[in-house]
Amino acid sequence: MFNSCTDPSALEGLSWLLCYLTTGKHLSMYWAVGTVLLLLAITAPVALVFGFGGASAARSRFLPLRWFGKAYISVVRGVPDIAFFMFFVIALDQAFELVRHKIKCPGWDQDIWQGNDFVVCTAAKLPLGTAPQWVHETYGFFLAVLTFSIVFGAFAANVLYGAMQAVPRAQIETAEAYGMTHRQSFWRIMVPQMWVYALPGLSNLWMVLIKATPLLFLLGVEDIVYWARELGGSKTTQFTDYPHPDWRMWYFLALLIFYLGFTRVSEVALDKIMKRLTKGQATMGGEAQRKAAA
């Protein structure tokens, strides 16, 4: 990266470290930090939408929809994350390709499953075999977002379901007395009030989600924990200009600080949101706020 880095063996101390920390490999690690943050930024709202949908479905008065919502919540919550990430994603990818295969190659005469192999025509591959590497990486990333959203959506659905049940019955009764329909009382009375009950559970989920990102590597997305392990492992002179012993401890220490800092920032933000949501609510927190102001 810098001109002074052409001969690392001649460098010492800080200038060596500067060169070492700006190798292409390290830049990939910094890039991975961005990937992880982007994943969180997309997954959290999408999972919340899934959760809201799941919870609403589970409370639906229409029986099959209620079954669907309850099945989604209990099945996904019950399957271990690692199994979900190993098999569900490959199955999802194959399902996409199967659909494309049926549409694009109607004249295909071979079996799709040949023993262990899953073979679809070239035009049905997702992404296409000829697509550049970044397309493959982006596709893998969005598969990851989808999988994370489905998993965390199920947990969020259970939290929101509980939160909806926790809104005092009297509030809904009052809404009914005013002549609101079921739909109106749901959107105008229940949804605005449920968040204060949901937030503690949702904040737990957010913390777990932050730390679940190493599962990304199972999907072929190189995350920060992968890079920390790869960069920290001992390197001999034959294969690198920057040989070093086992430095994983330092890399993982850096990760520890990153994760702790990130969760701390989240805590502060969540506290602020909680204060806002509590305002004017018929809860102990809301009552305390009212007394403090009075």
Binding site: G24, G129, G233, F239, D241
Partner: peptide
């Protein structure tokens, strides 16, 4: 046809990730 070559990238000298990543 692009052939995608899958490797581990953690087993020098067979395959590894070099300084340039």
């Amino acid at each position: 046809q692009t052939v995608r070559m899958g490797t581990e990238g953690a087993y020098p000298p067979y395959n590894f990730i070099n300084d340039a990543g």
